[in-house]
């Protein structure tokens, strides 16, 4: 199957969770795991990858936690895919033409390049502020399923309030 890994699926949900909170909100990793029903160890690893990619920021100590490193409107789904998957390259000859000696004359190679761009452009256009704005259906669904945990640092907005 051509698709994203489970890590990327979870990473998008982690970023969405933070984007649904008030700007600057910091939450413990355990809260995200609980709200979004994700395995804690897995979330820890994903947060590490997203911090390294500059999507999230962490602070230690009391009042610490995970937050978005930038405003949600500056974070795209494409960045999350880049952080978790290393990017989109529909075929290996897209990222490195040297893998095939005939790539320059190959009509299929240029099609993989075009399709890769179509997908990349779309993913870059999906911003987390837009996803979070539509959270009015989604957030109550999460809350119904899982009891609310602690949210530190800032008052949550929307359905989490």
């Amino acid at each position: 199957m051509l698709g994203i890994s489970r890590q990327t699926d979870y990473a998008a949900r982690v970023v969405l969770h933070l984007a649904c909170l008030a700007p600057g909100a910091k939450v413990p990793i355990a809260d995200i795991a609980k709200h979004r029903m994700l395995p804690l160890d897995f979330v820890r690893r994903i947060v590490g990858d997203l911090v390294k990619a500059g999507v999230l920021a962490t602070s230690r100590g009391s009042g610490g936690g995970v937050s978005l490193a930038r405003p949600a409107e500056d974070i795209s789904l494409g960045e999350v895919v880049l952080a978790m998957e290393g990017g989109v390259a529909l075929n290996h000859c897209v990222s490195d033409r040297r893998v095939c000696p005939l790539a320059s004359a190959c009509p299929v190679q240029s099609v993989w390049v075009d399709a890769t761009r179509v997908l990349e452009d779309y993913l870059a256009s999906v911003r987390f502020d837009a996803l979070a704005k539509r959270g009015d259906i989604h957030q109550p669904a999460h809350l119904r399923v899982q009891e609310i945990g602690r949210v530190r640092g800032a008052a949550p907005k929307g359905a989490l309030a």
Partner: peptide
């Protein structure tokens, strides 16, 4: 209701 699912679906 999932917002990211919709984005994956559109992609």
């Amino acid at each position: 209701g999932c917002l990211v699912q919709r984005a994956w679906g559109d992609a």
